[in-house]
Every structure is written in C-alpha cells, then in structure tokens.
Amino acid sequence: MSPDAPSDWPRENGRPAPLPAAPSLPAATSVPPTAAAARGYVRCVLRHRADRGEGTVTERVLNDVLLVVSELFTNALRHGGGVTRFEVSTAAGVLRVTVGDRSTDLPRRRHTAGPGTTTGGTGGYGWPLIRELATEIDLVLERGGGKHITVTLPLN
C-alpha cells in the first residue's frame, strides 16, 4: 500500500527482514489490555532505544507514533473483535508496529455524508491518519482467521 522500506533496511527474500526484539512487555501476556497500555509500552521501547544510544525522537514524532498505535489498537478492539497480537520493534531509524485482530475485514476509509458526518456510524478518521503517517503498511489475512496490520513509521 505504501512505498518499500528504505534501501538500507535489512532484507530477506526481497521483503524487509524482522527487526531486533524489543523489551518484553511487563505483563504476562504479549497483548496489552488497553490502548493506553500499548502506548506506554511503545514509550518504553523508544526509551530503551535512546538508552542504547540509537537516538531520541522529537515530540512531534512521538505524538505521531502514539496516535498511530492508539488508532490501530482501538480499531482492532472496536471493529476487529479484539486485539490478538501486538509487536513493536525499532531499527534503521524506524519503528515497526504490528496489531492483529480476529476479523478478516480490511480497514477502509469512510466517506463523509456531509459536513461533520460519516456514513456507517461515528469515527472514520483513524485509517486515513495511519495511511498518512506510515511509510509502509502491510495487511495480512491469517490462515486460521483474523488479520494483522504492520506499519512502519519514521523516527526522525
């Protein structure tokens, strides 16, 4: 859906290679219970990255990253039957976030029916924001049902 990963990105079989593991989630599960907990985990990952001397992020970048994490997580809860997967990693100046859910419905943009309204209920702003802020988006339907969405976001 979006441009390929940067040319300096490690690759396997022509696709971006997996990123190094991020710090473990503090909870016993790998899926945070809320969007706020997911945002907190991303903050920890970015703090861990800075502690390793890999750079800090500006406030604007941090806000963009946290907005995308919130939207992905909330959309999985509201429209996808719950979050089934949550992964965060960093490398080569980018953050990669994967959120999985139980639905095979792909995200779509809602069209406005008039000023301040959308068809099909409230909302409709999250997916366009994600598409605007991410440099790469990968949508995968799982064999056993559900899907996961991986977004790559610049950290500089």
Score class of each variant (00 low, 15 high):
residue 3 P to H: 11
residue 3 P to K: 07
residue 5 A to K: 00
residue 7 S to N: 04
residue 8 D to M: 01
residue 10 P to I: 01
residue 13 N to K: 01
residue 16 P to W: 06
residue 16 P to E: 10
residue 19 L to D: 05
residue 20 P to V: 02
residue 21 A to C: 06
residue 23 P to L: 03
residue 23 P to V: 05
residue 25 L to E: 07
residue 25 L to W: 13
residue 27 A to K: 11
residue 28 A to H: 15
residue 31 V to Y: 07
residue 33 P to L: 08
residue 35 A to V: 05
residue 38 A to V: 09
residue 38 A to F: 07
residue 40 G to W: 03
residue 40 G to S: 07
residue 40 G to F: 08
residue 41 Y to T: 08
residue 43 R to Y: 07
residue 43 R to K: 12
residue 44 C to S: 14
residue 45 V to L: 04
residue 47 R to K: 02
residue 47 R to Y: 00
residue 48 H to M: 01
residue 48 H to A: 05
residue 49 R to L: 02
residue 50 A to W: 00
residue 51 D to R: 05
residue 53 G to M: 04
residue 54 E to D: 09
residue 56 T to S: 10
residue 57 V to D: 03
residue 57 V to M: 06
residue 58 T to L: 09
residue 60 R to D: 10
residue 60 R to L: 11
residue 61 V to A: 15
residue 62 L to E: 05
residue 63 N to G: 13
residue 64 D to A: 09
residue 65 V to Y: 02
residue 66 L to D: 00
residue 68 V to C: 09
residue 68 V to F: 07
residue 69 V to I: 09
residue 70 S to W: 11
residue 74 T to S: 13
residue 77 L to H: 08
residue 78 R to F: 04
residue 79 H to E: 03
residue 79 H to D: 09
residue 80 G to K: 09
residue 80 G to C: 13
residue 82 G to K: 11
residue 84 T to W: 05
residue 87 E to T: 10
residue 87 E to S: 05
residue 87 E to D: 11
residue 87 E to G: 10
residue 88 V to S: 10
residue 88 V to Y: 01
residue 88 V to D: 03
residue 89 S to L: 02
residue 90 T to N: 02
residue 91 A to S: 11
residue 91 A to Y: 08
residue 91 A to G: 12
residue 95 L to T: 00
residue 97 V to G: 00
residue 97 V to D: 00
residue 102 R to A: 13
residue 103 S to A: 07
residue 104 T to E: 15
residue 104 T to L: 08
residue 109 R to M: 10
residue 110 R to Y: 08
residue 110 R to N: 06
residue 110 R to C: 09
residue 110 R to L: 11
residue 111 H to F: 02
residue 111 H to A: 09
residue 112 T to W: 01
residue 113 A to F: 03
residue 117 T to W: 15
residue 117 T to P: 09
residue 121 G to H: 14
residue 122 T to S: 04
residue 122 T to I: 01
residue 123 G to D: 03
residue 123 G to M: 05
residue 125 Y to T: 15
residue 128 P to E: 06
residue 128 P to Y: 11
residue 130 I to P: 02
residue 130 I to D: 05
residue 131 R to I: 04
residue 131 R to A: 14
residue 131 R to T: 12
residue 132 E to V: 12
residue 133 L to G: 15
residue 134 A to C: 02
residue 137 I to Y: 08
residue 139 L to F: 14
residue 142 E to I: 14
residue 143 R to F: 09
residue 144 G to F: 00
residue 147 K to M: 14
residue 147 K to I: 15
residue 147 K to G: 14
residue 148 H to F: 12
residue 149 I to A: 13
residue 149 I to D: 04
residue 151 V to W: 08
residue 152 T to R: 13
residue 153 L to N: 09
residue 153 L to G: 14
residue 154 P to Y: 00
residue 156 N to T: 13
residue 156 N to D: 13
